[in-house]
Nucleic acid binder design. Structure first.
Lengths: 232, 232
DNA sequence: GGCTGCTCTGGAACGCCGTTCCAGAGTGGT
DNA sequence: ACCACTCTGGAACGGCGTTCCAGAGCAGCC
């Protein structure tokens, strides 16, 4: 009140920008979850009104896409030289996996809009390693697509699990609860599920994810005819 | 106005019920998409008010779950005796795949809430076939989870694609458009994607999906490389 | 028949959402 | 001094999920 317009080095300490909007959106998504990202909450965090945000972003869809793009692109950026294509694919997949574990909302976003830009880069990198693996040209699309679909599937599941209990229960307790629920299922209708309830309780998400990748990689590198001896 | 309470055989021609609510919700989702399911629209279709629906359903989450459950359970119901476990798994996966193609909203729903009931039954059936395949006990959970994750991943992608262009373009035209977009990408940054743009244009979703299933099945049934050191 | 208690209805209202609108502040060019 | 342009932010709109509640219909008991 005392000073009205004097003593203002810039219009505000930091002017609005698309970058700042997206960054704040990511923080909001990380702290308050997917439902926490609101134009009003975002405006409050940026000390402005909802209308101002629309000058830098066309709408919520673009905002979510930009936030996802920003997070995923960081994982793709770190290009380490891996000795084998298999390890390169594992590293690539783990990058996406870790990004989703750190930001569960990315999983839900990717699972429901994969054709967009961020995952296309992952697809490209996977495809190159598939080529390096010596996969026949006609099977390369299938192989890369299968790997991508699997990654996106795990992404969605992890996001769903993280949404189930974001703040409170630690992972061990959560797994114990679900495992106990599985063990209490009908023995006739859910014989298998009951049988693996123990494995669910002690399993490691990252290891299971990688094991699935390896399963697909084995399928890709194994010739269709089972008479082929194990390649190395 | 003429007759007030006379001439009414029942309170209404058909009383509200949870079954009728869920069924109408499915119809609404199929015709108007995920965003078309609204308590007001649902109330209009049922010739009632929004409040009445809450007597039969606790909220929108349960409504969506019930609708998904209803659609998925129909696919699991048809139990045909398949000669081999592989074919049984393929049939199971195709059932889910077809259900999602017929109701794209199911894909999005499954991809973002897989731990719930409907997919647990699929998991159970897959797991039994995995057991029949002779997979070692310690690897059964991994194998079934990988298959389920892959199915859910494809589910999400199909749902996203269907959401991109629900009514208008036929599939061939859509694929041609995306394929052309891929072919126009930067040759350095997207060499592989450009290379498989042709395969994208002519590919068959069902066949690709099954090919991915077969990749994982091959990985499951192929013995690990004997020289492979235990990877953590 | 009345009366009561229960199930079920459906319209009104609440608060929040994404989005649009627009008056106007700030700023650089002439 | 003026203008044109970028950018701001508060108000407002329609629609959403959800809640609330007066009351309709329908047993069952007096």
């Amino acid at each position: 009140m005392a000073t009205r317009t004097t003593r203002r080095p810039e219009r505000r300490e930091e002017p609005l920008s698309r970058e700042r909007v997206v960054e704040s959106a990511i923080e909001l998504l990380d702290t308050a979850g997917e439902s926490g990202l609101t134009f009003r909450a975002l405006a409050a965090r940026l000390a402005t009104g909802p209308g101002a945000i629309y000058w830098h972003v066309t709408g919520k869809d673009e905002l979510l896409s930009a936030a996802t793009e920003a997070v995923v692109s960081r994982t793709t950026a770190s290009g380490t030289a891996d000795p084998t294509p298999q390890e390169a694919i594992r590293a690539l997949a783990l990058g996406v996996f870790d990004a989703i574990e750190a930001h569960p909302w990315v999983g839900a976003q990717l699972a429901s809009a994969p054709a967009r830009s961020p995952m296309l880069r992952v697809f490209e990198h996977i495809g190159r390693q598939v080529q390096t693996l010596g996969v026949p040209h006609t099977a390369q699309f299938t192989a890369a697509s299968a790997l991508l679909s699997y990654i996106l599937g795990v992404a969605g599941q992890n996001a769903a699990n993280a949404r189930g209990c974001p703040p409170n229960t630690n992972r061990t307790e959560f797994l114990a609860t679900v495992s106990a629920a599985w063990a209490d299922l009908d023995p006739d209708e859910y014989a298998f599920t009951r049988d693996v309830a123990d494995q669910l309780r002690v399993h490691d998400d990252r290891a299971e994810f990688l094991a699935g990748i390896d399963l697909i990689l084995t399928g890709i590198t194994t010739h269709r005819e089972p008479t082929d001896p194990a390649p190395s």
